[in-house]
Amino acid sequence: MAELRLIDAINQALHEEMERDERVLVLGEDVGRKGGVFGATEGLYDRFGGERVIDTPLAESSIVGVAIGMAANGLLPVAEIQFADFIFPAMNQILSEAARMRYRSNGAFGCPLVIRAPYGGGVHGALYHSQSVEAFFAHIPGLKVVVPYHPGDAKGLLKASIRDPDPVLFFEHKKLYRMVRGEVPEGDYIVPLGKAAIRREGKDLSVFAYGLMLHEALVAAEEVAKEGIDAEVVDLRTLRPLDKETLLASVRKTNRALIVYEDNGFLGYGAELAAILAEEAFFDLDAPIMRVTGPEVPAVPYAPPLERWFMPDARRIAEAMRRLAQY
């Protein structure tokens, strides 16, 4: 099995799906000749040509809107939004159209569409190249939201998303693209949507995270392990539909919950996790639910000390783990 980076796993999944099914096509800004600004679509243009690998005009609403039409007429489009920060012009198409196509037509029309977008901070991207936007989309019934951490997952989840009959938002943390390597099974490897993964088993407390924060949580767990705190680290992988069973089972085992997300805390994705735990696992909790999140500012600032101030990291997560373990 090959050890690949996240970006390579995504590229491989795209190659394999386009090879396997001629209905699959890729569209977005710079995805063709350039192979994407991060290289996710590298090689696709040469292999499959400009008709299936479309360099679109710089207009996000029509990238998604045109993809919705393609999906209605028999294609399986994978749209790339160059940075998650630029997805908002397409919000109306995603929310009012893609998410509601099946519901509003009473099941008559579907919208098999994947929207890939690099998200997240820690890469000197400042206010408009660093955002975590998952909460906006995870809020919407009709959408599925996936955030891979492990390169193997990135391949398996992307393939599952492309084959899914409903619209999937696929957020890739851009700092993870080339940061860690992981085993990526060759060939037709699928990771089903809606299943969390326990990355580290533990008995003292549960940490729930996804994307880059999952990596930071794993580092933090090893750190506090030296002090005798045995943390369980749960990789949510799919934010909608949420794997509630794994979430609840982990808390019933450890009786302590720490939720980590990079987005600012107020009404972020983890707020819903906290609500579910409060509603359904209240009597299993030995301590208040804790969160480590980004601060309440509109976006990630640029200057290195400011960016470091913004980003939740292993050190902060470890501190929270200690507080939670001692509660």
């Binding site: 045109v66 039409g69 393609m70 209605a72 007429n73 028999g74 294609l75 489009p77 159209e97």
Partner: peptide, 13 residues
């Protein structure tokens, strides 16, 4: 844009 996508698909297919 939906109509454009439908037409693009018709062309490709």
């Amino acid at each position: 844009p939906h109509a454009v996508g439908i037409a693009y698909a018709a062309k490709v297919r």
